[in-house]
Simulated assay, not measured.
Amino acid sequence: MANYSIKDLEHLSGIKAHTLRIWEQRYGLINPKRTDTNIRYYDQDDLKLVLNVSLLKDNGFKISKIAEMSKKELQEAVVEVSDKTTSFVDQIYGLTLAMIDLDEQRFEKIISSSTLKVGFERTMLNIIYPFLSKIGIMWLTDAVNPAQEHFITNLIRQKVIVAIDGQYETFDEKAKKYMLFLPEGELHELGLLFANYLIRAKGNKVIYLGQNMPFDDLSMVYDTYQPDYLFTILTNNSRAFDPKEYLANLSELFPNTEILVSGSQIIGEDLGLPDNVIEVANPNRILEFISAHQSESVSK
Protein backbone atom coordinates (compact mmCIF):
# COMPACT_ATOMS: atom_id res chain seq x y z
CA MET A 1 0.00 0.00 0.00
CA ALA A 2 1.30 3.46 -0.94
CA ASN A 3 2.42 5.98 1.66
CA TYR A 4 1.85 9.72 1.28
CA SER A 5 3.25 12.90 2.75
CA ILE A 6 0.93 15.72 3.71
CA LYS A 7 2.08 17.53 0.56
CA ASP A 8 0.94 14.53 -1.50
CA LEU A 9 -2.52 14.80 0.08
CA GLU A 10 -2.56 18.52 -0.72
CA HIS A 11 -1.70 17.94 -4.39
CA LEU A 12 -4.23 15.15 -4.81
CA SER A 13 -7.16 16.69 -2.94
CA GLY A 14 -6.63 20.41 -3.44
CA ILE A 15 -6.83 20.96 0.34
CA LYS A 16 -3.92 22.96 1.72
CA ALA A 17 -1.49 21.13 4.00
CA HIS A 18 -2.04 23.83 6.65
CA THR A 19 -5.79 23.12 6.60
CA LEU A 20 -5.23 19.37 6.88
CA ARG A 21 -3.04 19.89 9.96
CA ILE A 22 -5.76 22.05 11.56
CA TRP A 23 -8.30 19.30 10.89
CA GLU A 24 -5.95 16.80 12.51
CA GLN A 25 -5.57 18.89 15.63
CA ARG A 26 -9.12 20.21 15.97
CA TYR A 27 -11.21 17.26 14.82
CA GLY A 28 -8.88 14.26 14.81
CA LEU A 29 -10.08 13.74 11.25
CA ILE A 30 -6.94 11.99 10.03
CA ASN A 31 -4.14 10.56 12.10
CA PRO A 32 -0.67 10.35 10.58
CA LYS A 33 1.44 7.27 11.08
CA ARG A 34 5.16 7.41 11.74
CA THR A 35 8.08 5.53 10.25
CA ASP A 36 10.79 3.94 12.38
CA THR A 37 12.70 7.19 11.98
CA ASN A 38 9.69 9.21 13.24
CA ILE A 39 8.71 10.68 9.84
CA ARG A 40 4.97 11.34 9.47
CA TYR A 41 3.09 9.65 6.63
CA TYR A 42 -0.46 8.80 5.55
CA ASP A 43 -1.85 5.65 3.97
CA GLN A 44 -4.37 4.90 1.21
CA ASP A 45 -7.32 4.98 3.62
CA ASP A 46 -6.29 8.49 4.67
CA LEU A 47 -6.16 9.57 1.02
CA LYS A 48 -9.64 8.20 0.36
CA LEU A 49 -10.97 9.94 3.47
CA VAL A 50 -9.48 13.29 2.46
CA LEU A 51 -10.91 12.97 -1.08
CA ASN A 52 -14.35 12.18 0.35
CA VAL A 53 -14.15 15.06 2.80
CA SER A 54 -13.12 17.41 -0.02
CA LEU A 55 -16.11 16.28 -2.11
CA LEU A 56 -18.58 16.85 0.75
CA LYS A 57 -17.04 20.16 1.77
CA ASP A 58 -17.28 21.45 -1.82
CA ASN A 59 -20.97 20.56 -1.74
CA GLY A 60 -21.83 22.57 1.37
CA PHE A 61 -21.11 20.17 4.25
CA LYS A 62 -19.50 21.75 7.33
CA ILE A 63 -16.19 20.18 8.32
CA SER A 64 -17.39 19.93 11.94
CA LYS A 65 -20.37 17.84 10.80
CA ILE A 66 -18.22 15.67 8.52
CA ALA A 67 -15.86 14.93 11.42
CA GLU A 68 -18.81 13.61 13.46
CA MET A 69 -19.92 11.15 10.76
CA SER A 70 -19.34 7.46 11.08
CA LYS A 71 -17.61 5.68 8.21
CA LYS A 72 -20.99 4.41 6.97
CA GLU A 73 -22.62 7.86 7.18
CA LEU A 74 -19.70 9.39 5.31
CA GLN A 75 -20.00 6.82 2.50
CA GLU A 76 -23.76 7.32 2.24
CA ALA A 77 -23.33 11.11 2.03
CA VAL A 78 -20.68 10.77 -0.68
CA VAL A 79 -22.90 8.44 -2.73
CA GLU A 80 -25.84 10.85 -2.41
CA VAL A 81 -23.75 13.82 -3.51
CA SER A 82 -22.19 11.87 -6.37
CA ASP A 83 -25.62 10.90 -7.67
CA LYS A 84 -26.79 14.52 -7.75
CA THR A 85 -23.70 16.49 -8.70
CA THR A 86 -23.11 18.00 -12.11
CA SER A 87 -19.69 19.37 -11.12
CA PHE A 88 -16.82 18.13 -13.26
CA VAL A 89 -14.44 18.47 -10.29
CA ASP A 90 -16.66 16.25 -8.14
CA GLN A 91 -16.86 13.64 -10.87
CA ILE A 92 -13.06 13.64 -11.20
CA TYR A 93 -12.86 12.97 -7.46
CA GLY A 94 -15.32 10.14 -7.97
CA LEU A 95 -13.18 8.60 -10.72
CA THR A 96 -10.12 8.87 -8.47
CA LEU A 97 -11.89 6.91 -5.75
CA ALA A 98 -13.16 4.37 -8.29
CA MET A 99 -9.57 3.82 -9.40
CA ILE A 100 -8.23 3.45 -5.87
CA ASP A 101 -10.98 0.98 -4.93
CA LEU A 102 -10.93 -0.81 -8.33
CA ASP A 103 -14.66 -0.06 -8.45
CA GLU A 104 -15.91 -0.59 -12.02
CA GLN A 105 -19.55 -0.01 -11.06
CA ARG A 106 -18.77 3.45 -9.73
CA PHE A 107 -16.76 4.25 -12.85
CA GLU A 108 -19.65 3.19 -15.09
CA LYS A 109 -22.14 5.23 -13.11
CA ILE A 110 -20.06 8.43 -13.31
CA ILE A 111 -19.28 8.20 -17.03
CA SER A 112 -22.77 7.06 -18.06
CA SER A 113 -24.46 9.80 -16.03
CA SER A 114 -22.19 12.50 -17.41
CA THR A 115 -22.57 11.26 -20.99
CA LEU A 116 -26.36 11.42 -20.67
CA LYS A 117 -26.22 14.96 -19.27
CA VAL A 118 -23.58 16.65 -21.41
CA GLY A 119 -22.60 14.15 -24.13
CA PHE A 120 -19.46 12.08 -24.57
CA GLU A 121 -17.30 14.84 -26.03
CA ARG A 122 -17.76 17.17 -23.05
CA THR A 123 -17.37 14.23 -20.68
CA MET A 124 -14.06 13.42 -22.33
CA LEU A 125 -12.78 17.00 -22.39
CA ASN A 126 -13.95 18.07 -18.92
CA ILE A 127 -13.74 14.86 -16.88
CA ILE A 128 -11.74 12.06 -18.47
CA TYR A 129 -8.81 14.09 -19.81
CA PRO A 130 -8.29 16.14 -16.59
CA PHE A 131 -8.60 12.90 -14.62
CA LEU A 132 -5.84 11.29 -16.69
CA SER A 133 -3.68 14.35 -16.03
CA LYS A 134 -4.33 13.81 -12.33
CA ILE A 135 -3.21 10.19 -12.67
CA GLY A 136 0.06 11.55 -14.04
CA ILE A 137 0.56 13.52 -10.82
CA MET A 138 -0.33 10.45 -8.78
CA TRP A 139 2.35 8.49 -10.65
CA LEU A 140 4.94 11.08 -9.62
CA THR A 141 4.02 10.62 -5.95
CA ASP A 142 3.61 6.81 -6.18
CA ALA A 143 -0.01 7.37 -5.20
CA VAL A 144 -1.27 4.89 -7.77
CA ASN A 145 0.15 1.47 -8.55
CA PRO A 146 0.35 -0.09 -12.04
CA ALA A 147 -2.67 -2.34 -11.43
CA GLN A 148 -4.90 0.61 -10.53
CA GLU A 149 -3.67 2.63 -13.50
CA HIS A 150 -4.18 -0.27 -15.94
CA PHE A 151 -7.63 -0.95 -14.49
CA ILE A 152 -8.95 2.57 -15.00
CA THR A 153 -7.24 3.37 -18.31
CA ASN A 154 -8.53 0.16 -19.87
CA LEU A 155 -12.07 1.05 -18.80
CA ILE A 156 -11.65 4.49 -20.37
CA ARG A 157 -10.16 2.96 -23.51
CA GLN A 158 -13.22 0.73 -23.89
CA LYS A 159 -15.53 3.75 -23.59
CA VAL A 160 -13.65 5.73 -26.25
CA ILE A 161 -13.62 2.79 -28.68
CA VAL A 162 -17.37 2.27 -28.22
CA ALA A 163 -17.95 6.00 -28.80
CA ILE A 164 -15.86 5.89 -31.99
CA ASP A 165 -17.80 2.84 -33.22
CA GLY A 166 -21.05 4.70 -32.58
CA GLN A 167 -20.14 7.76 -34.64
CA TYR A 168 -22.42 8.19 -37.63
CA GLU A 169 -20.13 9.07 -40.50
CA THR A 170 -21.38 10.90 -43.60
CA PHE A 171 -18.34 12.46 -45.22
CA ASP A 172 -18.32 15.30 -47.67
CA GLU A 173 -16.03 14.72 -50.63
CA LYS A 174 -13.96 17.69 -49.47
CA ALA A 175 -13.65 16.50 -45.87
CA LYS A 176 -10.12 16.80 -44.50
CA LYS A 177 -8.12 13.60 -44.09
CA TYR A 178 -5.97 12.82 -41.04
CA MET A 179 -3.46 10.02 -40.56
CA LEU A 180 -3.00 9.03 -36.90
CA PHE A 181 -0.16 6.87 -35.57
CA LEU A 182 2.31 6.33 -32.74
CA PRO A 183 6.04 5.75 -33.36
CA GLU A 184 7.76 2.43 -32.81
CA GLY A 185 8.08 1.69 -29.10
CA GLU A 186 5.13 3.99 -28.27
CA LEU A 187 2.36 1.89 -26.72
CA HIS A 188 0.15 4.37 -24.84
CA GLU A 189 -2.60 5.02 -27.38
CA LEU A 190 -5.37 6.51 -25.26
CA GLY A 191 -4.52 10.07 -26.32
CA LEU A 192 -4.48 8.98 -29.95
CA LEU A 193 -7.92 7.41 -29.54
CA PHE A 194 -9.18 10.70 -28.07
CA ALA A 195 -7.87 12.55 -31.12
CA ASN A 196 -9.48 9.97 -33.41
CA TYR A 197 -12.88 10.57 -31.79
CA LEU A 198 -12.60 14.37 -31.88
CA ILE A 199 -11.45 14.54 -35.50
CA ARG A 200 -14.23 12.21 -36.68
CA ALA A 201 -16.82 14.08 -34.60
CA LYS A 202 -16.13 17.22 -36.65
CA GLY A 203 -16.84 15.46 -39.94
CA ASN A 204 -13.27 14.66 -40.97
CA LYS A 205 -11.84 11.39 -42.27
CA VAL A 206 -9.31 9.39 -40.27
CA ILE A 207 -7.02 6.49 -41.03
CA TYR A 208 -6.00 5.12 -37.66
CA LEU A 209 -2.70 3.19 -37.63
CA GLY A 210 -2.47 2.88 -33.85
CA GLN A 211 0.58 2.18 -31.72
CA ASN A 212 4.12 1.03 -32.54
CA MET A 213 4.07 2.11 -36.20
CA PRO A 214 7.37 1.48 -38.06
CA PHE A 215 8.75 4.69 -39.55
CA ASP A 216 9.64 3.05 -42.87
CA ASP A 217 5.98 2.03 -43.45
CA LEU A 218 4.56 5.54 -43.14
CA SER A 219 5.39 6.53 -46.72
CA MET A 220 3.42 3.64 -48.18
CA VAL A 221 0.30 4.53 -46.18
CA TYR A 222 0.74 8.22 -46.95
CA ASP A 223 1.03 7.62 -50.69
CA THR A 224 -2.11 5.48 -50.69
CA TYR A 225 -4.29 7.60 -48.39
CA GLN A 226 -2.98 11.10 -49.26
CA PRO A 227 -3.83 12.71 -45.90
CA ASP A 228 -4.04 16.46 -45.38
CA TYR A 229 -2.59 16.18 -41.87
CA LEU A 230 -0.56 13.77 -39.74
CA PHE A 231 -1.03 13.39 -36.00
CA THR A 232 1.22 11.62 -33.50
CA ILE A 233 1.99 11.62 -29.77
CA LEU A 234 5.44 11.25 -28.21
CA THR A 235 5.70 10.11 -24.58
CA ASN A 236 8.53 7.56 -24.88
CA ASN A 237 11.35 8.67 -22.58
CA SER A 238 13.76 5.93 -23.63
CA ARG A 239 17.31 7.13 -24.19
CA ALA A 240 17.24 5.32 -27.52
CA PHE A 241 14.45 7.63 -28.75
CA ASP A 242 15.24 11.21 -29.70
CA PRO A 243 11.94 13.13 -30.22
CA LYS A 244 13.64 16.07 -31.94
CA GLU A 245 15.37 13.78 -34.42
CA TYR A 246 12.17 11.80 -35.02
CA LEU A 247 10.19 14.93 -35.84
CA ALA A 248 12.96 16.25 -38.05
CA ASN A 249 12.83 12.98 -40.00
CA LEU A 250 9.03 13.17 -40.25
CA SER A 251 9.23 16.74 -41.48
CA GLU A 252 11.80 15.79 -44.11
CA LEU A 253 9.75 12.78 -45.24
CA PHE A 254 6.51 14.79 -45.51
CA PRO A 255 7.65 18.38 -46.16
CA ASN A 256 4.36 19.54 -47.68
CA THR A 257 2.08 18.20 -44.93
CA GLU A 258 1.31 19.75 -41.54
CA ILE A 259 2.22 17.37 -38.72
CA LEU A 260 0.38 17.72 -35.41
CA VAL A 261 2.27 16.43 -32.39
CA SER A 262 1.51 16.14 -28.69
CA GLY A 263 2.87 14.27 -25.67
CA SER A 264 5.14 14.76 -22.67
CA GLN A 265 8.31 14.59 -24.78
CA ILE A 266 7.13 17.62 -26.76
CA ILE A 267 4.89 19.88 -24.67
CA GLY A 268 6.88 22.62 -22.96
CA GLU A 269 10.23 21.21 -24.12
CA ASP A 270 11.13 24.06 -26.50
CA LEU A 271 12.67 21.68 -29.04
CA GLY A 272 12.68 24.11 -31.94
CA LEU A 273 10.21 22.27 -34.15
CA PRO A 274 10.38 22.25 -37.97
CA ASP A 275 8.10 24.73 -39.73
CA ASN A 276 5.49 22.12 -40.71
CA VAL A 277 5.31 20.55 -37.23
CA ILE A 278 2.64 22.01 -34.93
CA GLU A 279 2.50 21.41 -31.19
CA VAL A 280 -0.99 20.70 -29.77
CA ALA A 281 -0.84 20.59 -25.99
CA ASN A 282 -4.25 19.07 -25.24
CA PRO A 283 -7.60 18.05 -26.80
CA ASN A 284 -8.91 21.62 -26.75
CA ARG A 285 -5.97 22.71 -28.90
CA ILE A 286 -6.74 19.84 -31.29
CA LEU A 287 -10.32 21.11 -31.58
CA GLU A 288 -9.07 24.64 -32.23
CA PHE A 289 -6.86 23.39 -35.04
CA ILE A 290 -9.65 21.30 -36.56
CA SER A 291 -12.05 24.24 -36.50
CA ALA A 292 -9.50 26.60 -38.06
CA HIS A 293 -8.71 24.15 -40.87
CA GLN A 294 -12.16 22.74 -41.55
CA SER A 295 -13.12 22.71 -45.19
CA GLU A 296 -15.87 25.22 -46.03
CA SER A 297 -18.22 22.53 -47.31
CA VAL A 298 -17.93 20.48 -44.13
CA SER A 299 -18.37 23.45 -41.80
CA LYS A 300 -21.60 24.59 -43.45
Rank of each mutant, 00 (worst) to 15 (best):
residue 197 Y to K: 07
residue 181 F to G: 02
residue 160 V to F: 04
residue 23 W to T: 12
residue 86 T to R: 07
residue 156 I to Q: 00
residue 182 L to G: 01
residue 287 L to Q: 08
residue 4 Y to F: 14
residue 190 L to K: 02
residue 166 G to I: 06
residue 62 K to D: 14
residue 18 H to P: 14
residue 268 G to F: 13
residue 47 L to I: 13
residue 155 L to A: 03
residue 68 E to C: 09
residue 79 V to P: 00
residue 183 P to M: 09
residue 235 T to V: 15
residue 73 E to G: 11
residue 77 A to G: 08
residue 179 M to P: 03
residue 67 A to N: 05
residue 41 Y to V: 10
residue 222 Y to N: 05
residue 299 S to H: 15
residue 7 K to L: 12
residue 99 M to Q: 02
residue 188 H to E: 04
residue 140 L to R: 05
residue 102 L to E: 07
residue 201 A to V: 08
residue 146 P to H: 13
residue 265 Q to L: 09
residue 149 E to L: 07
residue 117 K to G: 11
residue 233 I to Y: 13
residue 223 D to N: 11
residue 255 P to T: 12
residue 156 I to H: 00
residue 293 H to T: 15
residue 20 L to K: 08
residue 54 S to K: 15
residue 284 N to H: 10
residue 220 M to A: 01
residue 68 E to W: 13
residue 172 D to L: 07
residue 151 F to I: 00
residue 111 I to V: 06
residue 195 A to C: 14
residue 79 V to E: 01
residue 42 Y to S: 04
residue 278 I to F: 11
residue 203 G to S: 12
residue 193 L to S: 05
residue 13 S to E: 13
residue 161 I to C: 02
residue 5 S to A: 07
residue 153 T to D: 02
residue 216 D to E: 03
residue 56 L to M: 08
residue 90 D to R: 02
residue 48 K to P: 03
residue 243 P to M: 11
residue 87 S to E: 12
residue 116 L to G: 02
residue 155 L to C: 06
residue 229 Y to R: 00
residue 39 I to S: 10
residue 152 I to T: 05
residue 211 Q to G: 10
residue 53 V to P: 01
residue 202 K to T: 08
residue 30 I to K: 08
residue 263 G to V: 07
residue 178 Y to R: 06
residue 145 N to M: 11
residue 150 H to I: 04
residue 198 L to R: 05
residue 279 E to N: 05
residue 295 S to W: 04
residue 297 S to D: 13
residue 210 G to D: 07
residue 126 N to G: 08
residue 20 L to H: 05
residue 187 L to C: 06
residue 191 G to D: 02
residue 25 Q to F: 13
residue 293 H to M: 11
residue 36 D to M: 12
residue 34 R to V: 10
residue 94 G to W: 01
residue 293 H to I: 10
residue 84 K to L: 13
residue 31 N to S: 12
residue 180 L to V: 03
residue 294 Q to T: 14
residue 215 F to H: 02
residue 80 E to P: 10
residue 278 I to V: 14
residue 75 Q to D: 07
residue 186 E to R: 03
residue 203 G to T: 15
residue 135 I to N: 00
residue 12 L to D: 02
residue 8 D to R: 04
residue 191 G to K: 00
residue 63 I to V: 13
residue 108 E to R: 01
residue 15 I to S: 09
residue 144 V to Y: 03
residue 3 N to M: 09
residue 155 L to S: 06
